[in-house]
Design a binder for these strands. Structure first.
Lengths: 128, 128, 128, 128
DNA sequence: GTGGTCTAGACCACG
DNA sequence: GTGGTCTAGACCACT
């Protein structure tokens, strides 16, 4: 069963989007795996203090992306395979990196400066 | 006169925000300088095919940030000094880097992998 | 004994409804006859991987329609006569045809086109 | 502007699904065309006596299918090209026909009988 | 108990 | 005015 303990709404983007992002990151990191059971809407709703409909929306969107399956009256499950994970990961990572690099370039920041910057920021939040 | 030719709507963020980001990046890169003249709202509106109110909003916000000055009936001008530029730059860069690093860490991607990734993406879009 | 081998979940309609439809079609086609024995609920459940309650519901509804009879602790049997079959058949056929024709008309498809279409689809799945 | 006058909820399927089906049929029939403007959620809501959220859901799903486009603050528009229409039509028609033929075959009804049946049903509801 | 639909209505962001 | 998000809560169908 997936735990949502670390999920905490922060930025301005919609909560359902943050939930999806959170799940996707877990899938990429390998903490969420194929066949995992998702908490029911009601349970999550109570747990996170979020309206069931909002949860429902997130689940529906993930189902549309074929990341999870759910059938009326039965629990919802994660449905992943190697390819799907690789796809998500590649897309997500690619997107993030491109956005970052584009921004840096637009500001006229050198590759070297970026390296130093990342080194600094990375360490500040705890080594991995 | 600032040119907006390279501005093209892409991500899902609001257009006025994209406009401001674009201008800020130019200021940091030095392509937009103190005293530069801004295109009139209605010209930009026609040029970019964006609602005049949206342009107006972007200008108003930049005015609030004291990046530009505009007087009713007259043109708008960029108003910058060394300190202001440094401030914007520091804030912007810091923010971008933190966002990027946080995302990478959430996905369990190593510092080394990030380096390789950036190297690849950076070169793909032309060296600086 | 009725075989459920060909039954495979497809459309979005509930499983119990699909089961009933399948049985009815068999009755009309004559492959399911008066007095035939139905598999036990638990056998079917295991065989089809469907929740026993769902099977139970289908059986209950068919019993209500007087298509089958079942006594506690005993097997269930099909109970049909000429009239019942004719009734089911007329109703079912009528309904299917009306649904189909209505859809075709809404899409502005001509009677001729429908004929050609049916000819094609009919042959694709083996002549009868 | 698309008119929803003829739309009237009937069968048991969800209203948002019926709305989508209605629109799709219009697209296939050619009464709804590329560039057509869709009524706003609020207007349709008032017009049909349906909750705005339900309309919203239908619109969102159609946007996901890339049948319409909508941007915050602006109206929604139909976005179609020849290929998309052909795809929808083919898929829809194919599906309906296959369902119908499969049902007929399962009931052991001959091709000839089906022809007669369709002839009868088609004429009953007004010639086209 | 679980998912799915729908209503009623508020609030925000955008154009 | 328009789309988008969210809450609160009811009701139904399915397992």
């Amino acid at each position: 069963m997936i735990s949502f303990e670390e999920l905490q709404i922060q930025d301005g983007s919609p909560m359902y989007a943050q939930m999806i992002r959170y799940i996707k990151h877990g899938m990429i990191a390998g903490t969420i795996r194929d066949g995992d059971e998702l908490p029911s809407r009601r349970m999550l709703s109570a747990l996170l203090g979020i309206n069931p409909n909002t949860i429902q929306k997130a689940y529906r969107l993930m189902e549309a992306e074929q990341l999870i399956v759910s059938h009326t009256g039965a629990k919802s499950y994660v449905t992943l395979d190697e390819k799907k994970i690789a796809d998500i990961r590649a897309k997500q990572v690619e997107e993030d990196a491109t956005t970052f690099v584009t921004a840096m370039k637009q500001m006229g920041i050198s590759k070297k400066e970026v390296s130093l910057l990342l080194e600094k920021v990375w360490n500040r939040k705890g080594e991995r």
